[in-house]
Amino acid sequence: MNVRIEVIYRTPKGTEAIFNSEEMCAKQALLLAEDLERTGRMKSITFIDSHENTWSLKELARQMEEIQTEPHNITIYFDGGFDLKTRKAGLGCVVYYEQNGKSFRLRKNALVDELESNNEAEYASLHLAVLELENLDVHHLPVTFSGDSNVVINQLNEEWPSYEESLSRWADRIENKLTRLGIDAEFNLISRKNNQEADRLASQALKEIEILSTSEVSGGAG
């Protein structure tokens, strides 16, 4: 969770000024706020998140305590594959997250047969990942989505137009779901080499090997 700080500062003679910080992680913002409080010259402090919600110091501290018990620091990898001969698509996603001071990895794939292209499979794999976020009860948090599809990443980042109605429908479905969950999404384009885990899951789905597992890992996404 990222926030910016708005502080009303008052000198001993009563002169006041308002200061605004750049956006930073909430944990860092709380440390700075606690340090400012010790000066005794801070009239008020407000934290503002990326959705323009405002938090007091106590509210943000309580929110951060609650977040520790829920999935957070989330990074997702997704990939889709399409077999022209069978007209089937394999979807794969990997969700890395932290909870209760531990790091976890969720792997999920699916085989579907109602798609028409590899680009649709890529979008469907991202949608599969978003559904897993919903299953984990993730909401109102930043999430990084990484994939090797130029089409999906550039269209969702609004750098490329979408001329295909089927792809536009997928994009709308994903964006609507992210909005309902309050997810602050970041879409990153990565190389196929760095997306091997999700690619493997998609390939296994095409071979009708179903994967659904959650395991503790020693570190986050690599």
Score class of each variant (00 low, 15 high):
3 V>D: 05
4 R>W: 12
6 E>Y: 09
7 V>C: 11
14 G>P: 00
14 G>H: 06
16 E>A: 13
19 F>E: 09
21 S>H: 09
23 E>M: 13
24 M>R: 10
25 C>T: 05
25 C>H: 15
28 Q>P: 00
28 Q>T: 13
28 Q>D: 13
32 L>R: 14
32 L>I: 15
33 A>Y: 09
35 D>N: 15
37 E>T: 13
40 G>T: 05
41 R>I: 03
43 K>P: 08
43 K>R: 15
44 S>H: 00
44 S>C: 03
45 I>H: 08
46 T>L: 14
47 F>M: 06
47 F>R: 04
47 F>A: 03
49 D>H: 12
51 H>T: 07
52 E>T: 06
54 T>V: 02
56 S>P: 00
58 K>E: 15
63 Q>N: 08
67 I>T: 11
68 Q>K: 14
72 H>A: 07
75 T>V: 10
76 I>R: 10
81 G>P: 02
88 K>W: 07
89 A>V: 08
90 G>S: 08
94 V>M: 00
98 E>P: 07
98 E>C: 06
102 K>C: 07
102 K>L: 10
105 R>P: 03
107 R>V: 09
110 A>P: 01
111 L>V: 04
112 V>F: 11
114 E>I: 09
114 E>H: 15
115 L>I: 05
117 S>K: 01
118 N>M: 04
119 N>L: 06
119 N>D: 13
120 E>I: 09
121 A>Q: 04
123 Y>F: 14
123 Y>R: 02
124 A>N: 14
125 S>C: 09
125 S>W: 13
128 L>P: 02
131 L>G: 07
132 E>P: 03
133 L>M: 00
136 L>V: 12
140 H>W: 03
141 L>W: 05
143 V>A: 10
156 L>Q: 04
164 E>Y: 01
165 E>H: 06
165 E>Q: 14
165 E>D: 11
168 S>H: 05
169 R>A: 10
170 W>N: 05
171 A>P: 04
172 D>A: 12
172 D>P: 00
173 R>C: 07
176 N>L: 11
177 K>G: 04
179 T>R: 13
181 L>P: 05
181 L>R: 02
183 I>P: 10
185 A>N: 13
189 L>A: 03
191 S>D: 07
192 R>Y: 09
195 N>Q: 11
199 D>H: 10
200 R>Q: 14
201 L>I: 06
202 A>D: 06
204 Q>I: 02
205 A>F: 01
207 K>V: 01
208 E>G: 03
209 I>H: 13
216 E>M: 04
216 E>H: 01
219 G>A: 15
